[in-house]
């Protein structure tokens, strides 16, 4: 990181070839000879629309891809869980907690994941919903696993065991007459 930065700082000038601003005045350097800016603007409307369409298509396609990515994860997780078995030990606990953690962290970052594909024309709701649904599925899988491990308080025994015994109203004691225990 630092190395790269140093390099950037060292540069004094740069040309941005993708810069398509029309006014030459905005730049310090004049256009090279023979370069006409007008020729670029020639069929601006058709070209840019095409390009934008392609881009948004690509974006939505990518977004759907990203949204479907957890499926692989899900399958992987399922396999791992099956491998881990249903007894409590380090491996199964690790798997289960990662299975719980992954969807949660993914859900937290839904916005960020779909950030690159944000476009006015791209409908992101579908992919997002799919993504969320799949992650929730993953989460459910994790919880289910937790339950099969017996770590979820879903049974009466889990709640009752921590209850103190009930107090008794009456108190009684006594016994045989006291004798010296020889």
């Amino acid at each position: 990181m630092e190395k790269g930065k140093g390099v950037v700082m060292g540069r004094r000038w740069a040309v941005d070839f993708t810069d398509n601003s029309t006014t030459p005045s905005s730049r310090d350097i004049p256009d090279p000879p023979g370069f006409s800016r007008a020729s670029l603007d020639q069929d601006d409307s058709t070209l840019s629309r095409q390009k934008k369409d392609a881009e948004s298509n690509w974006k939505s396609q990518k977004a759907w891809e990203v949204a479907q990515a957890p499926v692989k994860n899900l399958l992987m997780m399922g396999f791992m869980m099956w491998m881990a078995g249903s007894t409590v030990h380090l491996f199964s606990i690790g798997i289960t907690f990662s299975a719980l953690w992954q969807p949660i962290s993914a859900l937290q970052g839904v916005g960020k994941i779909f950030e690159p594909y944000k476009d006015s024309k791209v409908e992101l709701l579908g992919p997002k919903l799919l993504f969320i649904a799949l992650n929730l599925g993953g989460l459910a899988l994790g919880v289910w696993k937790l339950n099969t491990l017996g770590l979820l308080p879903t049974h009466a025994s889990d709640w009752v065991l921590s209850l103190p015994p009930a107090q008794e109203v009456e108190y009684s004691a006594g016994g045989m007459p006291l004798h010296q225990g020889l």
């Binding site: 017996g150 049974h155 009466a156 025994s157 889990d158 009752v160 065991l161 921590s162 209850l163 103190p164 015994p165 009930a166 004691a173």
Partner: peptide, 17 residues
């Protein structure tokens, strides 16, 4: 008389109590 009992329930297999 000074015995301490932790819980009144006993968990059995199949999560029965």
């Amino acid at each position: 008389s000074n015995e301490v009992v932790h819980t009144q329930a006993k968990a059995m297999s199949e999560h029965d109590v």
